[in-house]
Nucleic acid binder design. Sequence first.
DNA 1: AAGCGCTTGTGAACGAGAGCACAAAGTGAG
DNA 2: CTCACTTTGTGCTCTCGTTCACAAGCGCTT
Lengths: 224, 224
Amino acid sequence: MTSHAKQGIPAATVARLPLYLRALGTLSDEGVTTVSSEELAAAAGVNSAKLRKDLSQLGSYGTRGVGYDVDYLVYQVSRELGLTQDWPVVIVGLGHLGHALANYGGFASRGFEVRALVDADPDIVGTRVAGLVVSPLDALEEIINAQGVAIAVIATPAMAAQDVCDRLVASGVSSILNFAPSMLVVPEHVEVRKVDLSIELQILAFHEQRKAPLLTPMAQAATS
Amino acid sequence: MTSHAKQGIPAATVARLPLYLRALGTLSDEGVTTVSSEELAAAAGVNSAKLRKDLSQLGSYGTRGVGYDVDYLVYQVSRELGLTQDWPVVIVGLGHLGHALANYGGFASRGFEVRALVDADPDIVGTRVAGLVVSPLDALEEIINAQGVAIAVIATPAMAAQDVCDRLVASGVSSILNFAPSMLVVPEHVEVRKVDLSIELQILAFHEQRKAPLLTPMAQAATS
DNA sequence: AAGCGCTTGTGAACGAGAGCACAAAGTGAG
DNA sequence: CTCACTTTGTGCTCTCGTTCACAAGCGCTT
């Protein structure tokens, strides 16, 4: 088995590859040329066995007794993630969050290029954000086709999200990053990832409450 | 076993409770008084068996043959998540993202109140954002103590994140939502959740590449 | 009051992921 | 060349989570 199971890289592994990539980038910047799985795992905050298993999914890019060549591994992971090519991205919705996303530098640094900004609000359309002029929602389909956009970011209010999503999908977008607090229904072949700020806070609140029931001396109905 | 396994609610379940809560809120607003697990599961985008199992972790709040009372369930889930009390929150770092977070309405609506904004930049300190005056980083400890902050949001550049984190933890914060693209090391008892925008995009790029290798007729080194 | 239909709650099978522990494989010294 | 040392790659086990399928339970109708 030389180039084996390219078909099925576990989702959990894929989710960690960007983490490794970042750690590797930092190491590379520091001039480190070789890392052991132990060191890289520590830098990425994971178990070293897990890291080795993850990397072994991509191929045998390490050298026993030595470790991994940093730059080579950066290349291999990047290639696996599809970051050796550039991905044109469109951001829909330019409220505070969309604004922040348009200005976020972390996108461009990894092969993502924000090509267009779209909003429904006439007051926002036409303004300049992050060096781009905001286009009207009507132009959505045209922009997607013209720019060859495959990945879109939704940062609209929840109410508008599904409609925007449908239009994106109809125009050929097949990967969506959704910041709106709503559940998107999409066809089988479309991949949606959701980032929900308030959900994360609620999860923290749960753990916080679990830790400190001592602060609130009431609410002890269920003791026995 | 009346009030049984309150101790161990699976992490996967906790992560979904906010989802259910949102769906329930929508239903409640629509005037729906009762839902079946099937309906609620559809609204939340999960499997109905999973939803029932999740809810059964909190107790037996459903009625066989009928379903769940929406408002009662909202209350029970809220209580479980610790949202019946208010959580004062501090946001550190007021770049574009911090700005957006400060203005994000989704926080206040669920028992979270942004009590203070903190930044290191003298140009930003003193300005008004979302109705609050930005405080200097020096005031961090004082603010946390005075406001009784247990949950903090880090939206600083990656380089500053660990330092801010350490100071937060030293002042008693035990739950942190980290938007900075860096790995935070914290003591055992501190809960950190990470939101990383560029990681999500990279995961999408992976799937996108997997779907369309036809667009790039090169890069076919490993065929056999 | 009894039976019927519906929905919950859960036992049990299944699957995915984490982590241990070790064999395989490479390096360098003697 | 051989041996000792290092680190990768992976088989195996165990835990956690998902899903199926069904018995238990509730309300409505007759």
